[in-house]
Amino acid sequence: MSITYQIPHSAKYYSTSNTFTAAFNVPVLGKYSFSNVAGNELQSVIQMPYNSVLLIERCTIGGNISEGNFLDAINTLPQFTLYRRIDNQIVYPRSQPVNNYVDNKEIVAWVFAEKQQKGFAGPVVPDELLITFTGLLDQTAALVGVTTIKIFVNFAIYIIQDTRFYKQFRDKIGGDVGKQVSNQ
């Protein structure tokens, strides 16, 4: 089953890729840990232009070990969490479990970009989509000799920079309220 959306034709398609590594014995002895590894936390997925709406449509997940070996080795379920940099707002209500390798899984979320860093002292930075990956794998017989496990998470994202669409998305009252407008 697939959900159909109507998005402006000016929407740009981006394919992103993030790699997460778990080294054997570091930091958990005898395991491959994705958690508490600096490189796996708050990786940048894509920068979000001002006044844009992102449609995260699909994700693809794979790794450098076979899926069977990955499933056999799961100790603590690997999962990823998507954030927006500004506000640390979580995109999905819960972390997304990675309990198999997936190819173009539909994983729809709409995200809008904030304008700038909030707070008085913070520098002005564009909003950004960030991802954190956690999880713990055992070393099974098949994984003896594997020093590093890598998991690749790809997203298919549409960035929509259309003023009308953005206003509608945010349900904002603009100067065109009450006017008869057409999307044609």
Partner: peptide
């Protein structure tokens, strides 16, 4: 062997 190094 280093600690927790599994082997075959």
């Amino acid at each position: 062997f280093q600690a927790k190094d599994n082997f075959i």
